[in-house]
């Protein structure tokens, strides 16, 4: 069940040049949220009307908070970057279907995140109770990486400019390190997800990808945020906000 809440800002800080780490108190949403889901945050400034979908980075059901780590990409997220503790924002959630987590503790889950696709994998990592490997790709530098280590994952880092870890992309890193896993949970740029899916399918590994598209309502009513998905021998447009954002990589038409 979704809720609309007037959420109180607990804290807001920069963790990289254009990346903000926002913690908000919204107990009803926190109570129902799971790894891989997102919330819709309304700018409510009169000019920017549509809510911004932001993935959930961490959930604290006891404190009733959710943590949102987002990149400043436009006017809405710039507005959110200026929020101060005590401010109130209108939030709708939890939205979408998250990751279905593997329950076999003897197996290995591989988390592959690219850039601002990394945050939702942190909650995923914390909820998983199996062997965990996190492959985190950045353009330059890193953020959140130590938190994956603290959540029990063996962490590999790749950067486009070689400033940290492996120089190159995440899929090249997987090949270079010959990483093995039983299931993959991934979020990041579409091009990364596409090549990761190929890598996974060649090895017969189940791979779940979190997709993105421009949204209006965030609940499945406006049918704005569609991507083509295989449907028997045919295909159909599915809604990222309601049918996803997480899809089995084998269903996605890249």
């Amino acid at each position: 069940m979704k809720h609309i809440e007037k959420a109180k800002v607990i804290s807001n800080r920069y963790i990289a040049d254009d990346i903000c780490d926002l913690v908000i108190e919204c107990p009803n949403i926190a109570k129902e949220a799971g790894a891989g889901q997102f919330v819709e945050v309304y700018p409510d400034n009169g000019e920017n009307l549509l809510a911004r979908p932001i993935s959930i980075c961490e959930i604290d059901k006891t404190k009733g908070t959710v943590r949102l780590v987002f990149r400043i990409v436009g006017k809405g997220t710039a507005l959110f970057s200026e929020l101060k503790s005590g401010d109130i924002i209108r939030v709708l959630g939890p939205c979408g279907n998250g990751y279905r987590l593997m329950e076999d503790s003897k197996k290995t889950a591989l988390l592959v995140g690219g850039g601002i696709g990394i945050p939702p994998l942190l909650e995923t990592c914390k909820e998983l109770e199996c062997n965990k490997i996190a492959v985190l790709g950045y353009s330059s530098g890193s953020f959140l990486a130590e938190e994956f280590t603290r959540a029990g994952a063996k962490v590999y880092i790749s950067t486009d400019d070689g400033s940290e870890g492996f120089k190159g992309n995440t899929v090249d890193l997987l090949k270079a390190e010959d990483i093995k896993a039983d299931v993959i949970y991934s979020c990041g740029p579409k091009i990364m997800l596409k090549f990761l899916s190929q890598w996974a399918m060649e090895r017969g590994i189940d791979c779940y990808v979190s997709m993105e598209e421009r949204m209006a309502c965030g609940i499945g009513a406006c049918v704005g945020c569609v991507i083509p998905i295989k449907d028997g021998g045919d295909w159909t447009y599915k809604k990222v906000c309601k049918d996803g954002p997480v899809f089995d990589c084998k269903e996605v038409i890249w």
């Binding site: 000019e47 549509l50 406006c222 704005g224 569609v226």
Partner: peptide, 13 residues
């Protein structure tokens, strides 16, 4: 898609 764009005080679909 894209089927949605935000504009000043409104949206396009």
């Amino acid at each position: 898609a894209p089927r949605i764009a935000e504009v000043y005080g409104g949206m396009l679909n």
